[in-house]
Nucleic acid binder design. Structure first.
Lengths: 127, 127, 127, 127
DNA sequence: GTGGTCTAGACCACT
DNA sequence: GTGGTCTAGACCACA
């Protein structure tokens, strides 16, 4: 399904969360699709089941998946999901910080915009 | 000089680093300006001197400041500093991640670009 | 601060969550108040620190508290928090279910309303 | 007879119990009416017979249905059923919890009452 | 089989 | 000292 970067400084559970969000929002995983069980994904990724469970709990709390005890975990319909204002604000701050980092490096505005445009191009499917 | 947000989830030392970078890159602090000693800044900000020392060590490692034994710590000439490619790549990844977060929220590309434009406007002085 | 009902069928972490919400929303704990550390509350309640940490994580995700690494966990300003529509809907369903339970017992509408009025009276401080 | 919400987080057996209670208390199913056998209902709902059997056991324990060996399962006379005080207390606690959830969201008393009134209106047939 | 919860104990970063 | 993360392994309810 995807791979983890064990050398990354990002938490494993966060990596799972991001990869799953990517698959869900991009449409690779569609609403009501069953996703691998906690134990299954844990054995595929070679991590502890609790770590996967933690990621799933977080994804569920954010509305990306839903879970039915004894049956498994499924992809939610993110299309019909209203954007949570608290989360949007958090994401905006994250964008602000990342652009500040470019500024602190002393590169000029034009080059910063080029970098951002490049990122948008990488996401050709967006919108 | 600047204030800390003790309620922020950002580490205090990181806040000090970012604020100092802001002052240096924006030109408020100029090359060879003396900056407060570790103890002095610690008492002004009401934080542990170890925290300030850590921030200074990091700023020095990144070339924003330099220390002269027995005389103090001074602002380096960031203009003449070549952009470190490793740091640039790290910042690019940060930008990529932050834009991904917007994508994961399910907002459309137009709105994402508006948010980014807004951030650039807030930095009216850039370039 | 509060006590747990170890005989309850409610999860311990959920009990911690509810008790903390009660203290925060009722105003006993005010914005920026420091709440007991994970380890401290765990030893007071005689439960595993991970259980308390789980409750704190959930409370933070819902915006009731915020945490600063190395310094502790604090009460957020819930007044300024917009009501999350997903959570409100969930709570409405919960209300609907609980009233259905009264209906299934075969009691009449009047008596059901009396029970509800009694609950509101118990929360004399509300509004 | 009724449908299950396989996406719901409620246990299937609980959904069967609630739907049966609804049909019985509302009068759609009348005392001594025969209800489908475990196997029959299981095949209609496309669920495991064990799940239906569990639901029937629970309904029988609570006095909503009764079984005659070799003949089938029938609706009990709920009118003549005294309200079980233990169950009533349990339902009251459930109501109390659900209203607490509204309180924790920070909505005011008026709005909470509106939500409850709406739920009562949805049950126009009650009483 | 599924996920949910709890315990126990380790290691890390930050203050 | 603080919280955050991960592992390991146990028990439970549900299907």
């Amino acid at each position: 399904m995807f791979e983890l970067d064990m050398k990354s400084r990002k938490a494993i559970s966060d990596q799972i969360i991001e990869n799953m969000k990517e698959l869900i929002v991009s449409g690779v995983l569609k609403p009501d699709d069953k996703i691998p069980s906690v134990r299954e994904m844990a054995s595929q990724l070679l991590v502890n089941p609790n770590t996967v469970a933690k990621a799933y709990r977080s994804l569920e709390a954010q509305g990306y998946i839903f879970t039915v005890k004894g049956r498994g975990t499924f992809v939610a319909d993110t299309q019909s999901m209203p954007v949570d204002s608290r989360e949007l604000k958090e994401a905006e701050n994250y964008v602000r910080d990342s652009i500040s980092k470019l500024y602190y490096l002393g590169i000029d505005k034009e080059r910063a915009k080029e970098i951002i445009d490049k990122v948008f191009e990488e996401r050709g499917d967006w919108k």
